[in-house]
Amino acid sequence: MTRVAVVTGAASGIGMAVCRALQESGWTVCGFDLAPIADLEHSFVCDVADRDAVDAAVAEVQRTVGPIDALVTAAGYYEFSPFSEITEESWNRMMRVHIGGLVGPVRAVLPGMVERGAGAIVAISSELGIAGTESEAHYSAAKGAILGFVRSLGSEVAGQGVRVNAVAPGPTDTPLLPAEQRTPEYLASLPARALAQPGDIAQAVQFLIDEGGFCFGEVISPNMGAVI
Rank of each mutant, 00 (worst) to 15 (best):
D50A: 06
G117Q: 05
I209P: 07
Y139S: 01
T133M: 14
F44C: 10
V48I: 14
L147V: 13
W27E: 08
G217V: 06
S221I: 06
T174G: 03
R93D: 00
A120E: 08
P67N: 10
P169M: 06
S221M: 09
G213H: 11
E115C: 00
F32Y: 11
E136G: 01
L34K: 09
G154F: 09
I201W: 03
V6M: 12
P191I: 06
W27T: 08
I121C: 04
S81M: 12
L34I: 12
V61E: 02
F216M: 08
V227H: 12
A188N: 07
G119S: 07
L153Y: 03
L40I: 04
G154P: 03
Y186R: 10
Q197S: 01
V58H: 02
M95P: 00
I14P: 00
S84T: 13
Q62I: 08
A158W: 09
I220C: 01
P198D: 01
S84A: 14
M224V: 15
G31K: 10
R20L: 13
P67I: 03
M1P: 11
A204P: 01
D33F: 08
V65H: 10
I130G: 00
L34T: 02
D47I: 08
E60T: 15
V122S: 09
A196F: 11
D33T: 10
R163H: 04
P175C: 04
Y139V: 04
R107W: 01
F44Q: 07
D69H: 13
I68W: 05
E156F: 06
A59W: 00
M95L: 15
P222S: 08
Q203G: 13
M1S: 13
G148P: 11
V72Q: 08
T73N: 12
T183R: 04
Q206A: 15
L34Y: 01
I124E: 02
P111M: 05
N92H: 14
G161D: 06
D39Y: 00
M94R: 04
V4C: 12
S152I: 05
S43A: 14
E115V: 06
D210K: 05
E218A: 15
Y139F: 12
G148E: 10
S12Q: 14
A141H: 07
S152Q: 12
W91V: 09
A188V: 01
V164S: 11
E134C: 02
S90D: 14
M224C: 14
I209Y: 09
E85N: 12
F80V: 13
R96N: 12
R193A: 11
I37T: 11
L176M: 15
E60R: 15
P178H: 02
R151A: 10
A118Q: 13
A17D: 01
A142D: 06
G132M: 11
A142S: 15
Q23N: 11
P105E: 07
L40N: 04
V54L: 04
I68Y: 06
T172F: 07
A226W: 12
G213W: 11
I99F: 01
R163S: 02
Q23V: 05
C30K: 05
C46A: 12
G217D: 07
E156G: 07
T28L: 09
E211K: 13
V58P: 00
V164N: 10
V162C: 02
V162Q: 03
G104S: 14
R193N: 09
F216Y: 13
A108N: 10
E60Y: 00
G161S: 07
E24V: 02
A56Y: 01
A17Q: 03
